[in-house]
């Protein structure tokens, strides 16, 4: 399963529509993740990892945290920077989870969608779509969120200083 987690208001649906348009099978019914309370589902059916191989599934940050790693082939974080630091909390939580659990990870931005390399990483060969970027608020971001967004959009590393800044902003936003 390729878990897609959206950071920002339009991120998840943009990503699912884009990937679905690119021919990937998509599921929108697993936002709470896959763990003992959600799998088996209410009908008693248990989803096996192999049933979800290669399938793109929308998952909330909490759902990702709870999901059995046996299901997580890859994690795609999609950023839609917005006013306020709510999206940074999601970025922080997802980065913390994937780095701690060593999950294969990719990130894209809905306002600067760099998709080169994403298709092969998803196991789909060259990605067929080049979606239009959505209207942006990036230019109105503070330097720190703007730098974090730029790193996510280009799959650049968050250095120690930027990581510390992300942790501080996320902690402050949570309070």
């Amino acid at each position: 399963m390729i878990a897609v987690v959206g950071a920002g208001p339009r991120a998840a649906e943009w990503a699912l529509a884009t990937l679905e348009g690119g021919g990937l099978p998509v599921r929108r019914d697993l936002p709470d993740g896959l763990y003992f309370a959600t799998n088996p589902g209410r009908d008693g059916h248990y989803l096996f990892p192999e049933e979800l191989a290669g399938i793109v599934a929308l998952v909330s940050p909490t759902g990702l945290d709870r999901t059995d790693p046996a299901f997580l082939e890859r994690v795609l974080l999609v950023a839609d920077p917005a006013p306020g630091d709510g999206w940074l909390v999601t970025v922080h939580d997802v980065l913390a989870d994937v780095s701690m659990r060593g999950l294969p990870f990719w990130s894209v931005s809905v306002v600067e969608p760099v998709l080169e390399g994403l298709g092969p990483w998803l196991g789909q060969g060259a990605f067929p779509m080049a979606p239009s970027p959505l209207p942006t608020t990036v230019e109105r971001l503070d330097p720190v969120p703007a730098a974090i967004h730029a790193a996510l959009a280009t799959r650049g590393d968050l250095d120690d200083e930027l990581t510390e800044a992300l942790v501080a902003r996320a902690d402050a936003a949570r309070k």
Binding site: Y35, F36, D68, A70
Partner: peptide
């Protein structure tokens, strides 16, 4: 606890 455990 087995029921709650991740199959991984």
């Amino acid at each position: 606890g087995v029921r709650r455990s991740h199959r991984a």
